[in-house]
Design a protein around this nucleic acid. Structure first.
Lengths: 123, 123
DNA sequence: CTATAAAATGATAATTGTTATCAATTATGA
DNA sequence: TCATAATTGATAACAATTATCATTTTATAG
């Protein structure tokens, strides 16, 4: 990666924000402080920063929503190769809801855990 | 909710699929077995089924990706009211990666936990 | 049974978040 | 300083999803 002023600004904006900003939010912050940046440049640099492990993208199952008829507590694993989604029993993280509520002091309504990797079949 | 044949078909498709289908996938399955259904009807019914707790939507932080400069293991909480994203320490789920790998027999490259609810400030 | 009101449908336009294209500009290092 | 690779901005394209609205279905009170 060569140096670029724009990338520096983007990284700085992410580092200076306690919240975990969206591309949209970063764009609006930069607009106010340093004038407008091309939206393409922004997305391009975010992807590069993620690819180089400098920042992390937080998200679940890629672009589109997946649906599950099993509404009981359990988690998911998506194979990066075949894109299949497997169930993971809630035993892998016992008491997780209570622990998180205690730490945050928040009222938790729900949560999802999504693991990503290579499934048994694809290995 | 009144009865509707279309909704019945959608629910049946989700229940008969081991994978956790996307809207796109459900649409293509129904196309083959029962002829085409309007894409609007499909999305409308999926939302209704989720709202009534009959199925669950699996996803992370809503529509757009959020970015995080902290690349160490930790989780997230999003307040449904103010939309702020808070960090949650990885202590709430110790050994979760090893446990999940053991259960699945898979090679896990990463995972996200996203809690949703009302934060301390908004309560 | 009807009549009627509420709910649901399908076609399609619109929206949103993101990526691709491509010509012009900038960074790097021999 | 010149050549090459990387980066930019403007804009078109795309994919997933939602909104609009006229038509059709469903539920139900009389």
């Amino acid at each position: 990666m060569n140096y670029s002023r724009q990338r520096e600004l983007i990284l700085e904006t992410i580092r200076n924000n306690v919240v975990h900003p969206t591309a949209e939010y970063i764009h609006s912050v930069l607009e106010k402080t340093h004038g407008s940046m091309s939206i393409a440049t922004l997305y391009r640099n975010l992807n590069q920063l993620v690819d180089n492990g400098i920042i992390k993208r937080i998200d679940g199952l890629e672009t589109s929503s997946h649906f599950d008829h099993n509404t009981h507590e359990h988690f998911h694993f998506m194979c990066e190769k075949c894109k299949k989604v497997y169930d993971v029993s809630s035993d892998v993280a016992p008491d997780i809801l209570a622990r998180a509520e205690k730490e945050l002091g928040a009222e938790i309504h729900g949560f999802d855990i999504v693991f990503r990797g290579i499934c048994n079949d694809c290995k």
